[in-house]
């Protein structure tokens, strides 16, 4: 089954097993965080750089490139 999650108010359909980052990219997004006023997205893709972090179900600092998207997840962009 393909999970659907909420991102910043939009419904995102992920392929089963896709990471949150993979699903956001597949939805046409390249960035989902701001740092010092500039946009950031995936950089290292393997959990090293912390550039792609999102808030998932209220918990901040989740690396979108590592976290598999689950049905019903509520994902929010971050800024720092």
């Amino acid at each position: 089954m393909s999970p659907t999650f909420e991102f910043d108010g939009a419904e995102i359909a992920a392929r089963d097993g896709q990471t949150i980052a993979g699903a956001l990219i597949a939805s046409g997004r390249a960035s989902w965080r701001t740092a010092a006023g500039a946009e950031r997205g995936v950089f290292c893709g393997i959990g090293i750089c912390q550039d792609c972090t999102v808030t998932v179900n209220g918990a901040a600092g989740v690396r979108a490139c590592l976290r598999t998207a689950c049905d019903g997840d509520v994902v929010e962009p971050e800024s720092r």
């Binding site: 390249a30 946009e39 997205g41 995936v42 950089f43 290292c44 893709g45 490139c65």
Partner: peptide, 8 residues
């Protein structure tokens, strides 16, 4: 956005 590592 759009710049990644090769590994990414």
């Amino acid at each position: 956005p759009g710049v990644t590592t090769a590994g990414a």
